[in-house]
Computed example of a mutant assay.
Amino acid sequence: MALIQWEEKYSVNVIELDKEHKRLLEMLNELHSAMKLGKSRELVEKLVNEAVDYCDKHLDHEEDLMKRCNYSGLSEHLKQHEIFRQKVTGFKLSLKKNNYTLSVGLISFFKDWFINHICTEDKKYSTNINNCKYS
Rank of each mutant, 00 (worst) to 15 (best):
V44S: 03
E76T: 15
E50G: 02
K96N: 13
H58W: 06
C55D: 02
L37V: 04
H77S: 04
K39H: 08
L59D: 02
V88P: 00
K39N: 05
T101R: 14
L47K: 13
L25F: 04
V48K: 00
E45R: 14
H61K: 15
K36W: 06
N29V: 04
L74A: 05
S75V: 10
R85V: 00
Y54Q: 06
L95Y: 09
R85F: 00
A51H: 15
L93E: 10
V44I: 14
A51N: 14
E62A: 13
K39D: 02
K67R: 15
L47Q: 08
D53G: 11
E62N: 06
L93T: 13
R68E: 11
R41M: 02
K67Y: 10
Q86W: 04
V48C: 01
N98S: 12
L65T: 11
E45S: 12
K67F: 04
K67N: 07
E63V: 10
K39W: 01
M66K: 10
E50V: 12
M66W: 02
N70D: 15
N29A: 07
L93W: 00
S33D: 14
S72K: 15
S33P: 00
E26I: 12
L95Q: 07
M27H: 08
E42G: 06
V48F: 00
L47W: 07
K96F: 01
E26S: 13
D56M: 11
L78Y: 08
G38L: 01
N49Y: 11
E42Y: 09
L28Y: 02
D60S: 09
N49W: 04
D64N: 11
V52E: 11
E82H: 07
D60Q: 11
A34S: 10
R68Y: 08
F91R: 10
M66H: 07
